[in-house]
């Protein structure tokens, strides 16, 4: 089974460790993983900024790079949402290539969803002692139905998950929103950090690096250097 790994632009630049954790998880589950070297970005930043044509061009590039894979997996609900919910349904809705994008969407999975629902893994390499709290990222949750999958995997690794209040509430990241409307974004993140901290968990875990950088950035600014902020892939791969 040939599985393409879509690393995501953010993981590539900021936290390569998450990419390697994903790689390790897929490989240890027996997948043949390919990582197309030319991959860059799914186009979402452009798409959500109104630059439709730019995002269409990038979508075509993604299609070309992953066309030959049996599956494609990304450690991000946001990028996966872009591919699964926006390419065929919006960007290429009236395009002759729509069917191609539908095929891509059908074989594309967010990492936790893939591990749980396609590979049906029964164990994970990582061990985590202690309590974590899980932040549900918006796209993964609302566009892809990612909710129990990461929690299930975390408990496989031995972590106990303490639910925070309003776990499904947006952390305020929103891509360029976090800069364009920084004050509002910061307040939203402040609320998120408060809910997370109230659980007493020693790590805040999520599935999207954008949210995680936002939350970590706010925690540190508030002077909290203790609480870890981790991608679930790192935790369950044992790289946390």
């Amino acid at each position: 089974m040939k599985v393409g790994l879509f690393v995501t632009c953010l993981v590539d630049v900021a936290r390569p460790g998450i990419g390697f954790a994903a790689l390790k998880l897929l490989e240890s589950a027996g997948c043949e993983v390919v990582v197309p070297a030319t991959q860059t970005c799914c186009g979402q930043p452009g798409y959500n900024s109104g630059a439709r044509e730019i995002s269409r061009t990038l979508a075509r590039k993604v299609l070309a790079e992953f066309k030959d894979c049996d599956y494609v997996v990304a450690p991000s609900g946001s990028c996966s949402g872009q591919v699964k919910a926006s390419y065929a349904q919006d960007l290429f809705k009236d395009d002759p290539d729509r069917a191609e994008f539908e095929k891509l969407a059908a074989k594309w999975y967010e990492l936790s969803d893939f591990l749980v629902n396609v590979l049906q893994v029964q164990s994970v390499p990582g061990r985590f002692e202690g309590t974590v709290t899980y932040h549900d990222s918006c796209s993964g949750l609302r566009e892809l139905g990612v909710k129990m999958q990461p929690r299930f995997l975390l408990s496989m690794a031995g972590a106990s998950v303490a639910e925070m209040a309003e776990a499904e509430k947006c952390c305020g990241f929103g891509g360029t929103f976090s800069i364009k409307l920084g004050e509002i974004s910061t307040r939203m993140c402040e609320n998120k950090c408060a809910s997370a901290r109230a659980t007493g968990a020693k790590a805040i875990v999520g599935g999207d690096l954008g949210c995680l950088l936002n939350i970590e950035g706010r925690l540190r600014r508030e002077g909290d250097h203790e609480t870890k902020v981790l991608h679930f892939a790192q935790v369950i791969a044992g790289d946390g």
Binding site: V7, D12, V13, G19, G182, E183, T186, R187, E216, G217
Partner: peptide, 24 residues
């Protein structure tokens, strides 16, 4: 240029090498 972010939050810095480099 990123003060919209950094006014109220720190920006966790990249770890130094890209995934692409390390993978190669």
């Amino acid at each position: 240029g990123l003060d919209g972010w950094t006014k109220g939050r720190d920006m966790p810095a990249p770890s130094g090498r890209t995934f692409r480099d390390l993978y190669r």
